[in-house]
């Protein structure tokens, strides 16, 4: 699979924090943030954590500002990519390709795919459980 750089004009819908201590770092960064942000859908793995945007009342979806976090957009429902990256394929074949990726690796969305700077490989983060950050992060 090939990934290409694009203009970073996609709508940010989630943020990803990676690396050892990602969850702890996110906990610290979110301390003192308003309830609207602390209740956002949250997913975590061994060395990563992600927050997904959600409308705040009648306003547009909201997200926190986190230093070093990777801004993500939803390339297709359930498939998240970093802003400024895309699957190198014409639009009309993208749904089929994403489905093929899932079937090939035996996984189902939602999933976060982060292409590596060099080569065609990407890191995959499977979102298996979503719950409000304030309830889940401390667990």
């Amino acid at each position: 699979m090939r990934w290409v750089r694009t203009d970073p004009v996609q709508t940010v819908g989630a943020v990803l924090v990676r690396g050892p201590g990602a969850v702890e770092g996110l906990n610290r960064a979110m301390a003192g943030k308003p309830a609207a942000l602390r209740s956002l859908p949250f997913a975590r793995g061994e060395d990563w954590a992600a927050l997904f945007a959600r409308p705040d009342g009648e306003n547009e979806p909201v997200l926190p500002r986190l230093a070093g976090a990777v801004p993500l957009y939803e390339a297709l429902p359930g498939w998240w990519l970093p802003v400024g990256w895309a699957l190198a394929a014409p639009d009309h074949v993208q749904p089929v390709l994403w489905q093929a990726i899932g079937e090939h690796y035996g996984l189902a969305p939602p999933a976060i795919v982060v292409p590596r700077e060099e080569g065609d490989e990407a890191d995959l983060y499977l979102v298996r459980h979503l719950a409000p950050f304030a309830r889940e992060a401390a667990a």
Binding site: V9, P34, A36, L37, V62, R65, P71, V83, G84
Partner: peptide
């Protein structure tokens, strides 16, 4: 609520 929207806007600007 307005501050949360400001934070979101900064995230969107810095992403681009």
């Amino acid at each position: 609520s307005w501050l949360v929207r400001v934070e979101t806007m900064l995230t969107r600007i810095d992403a681009a």
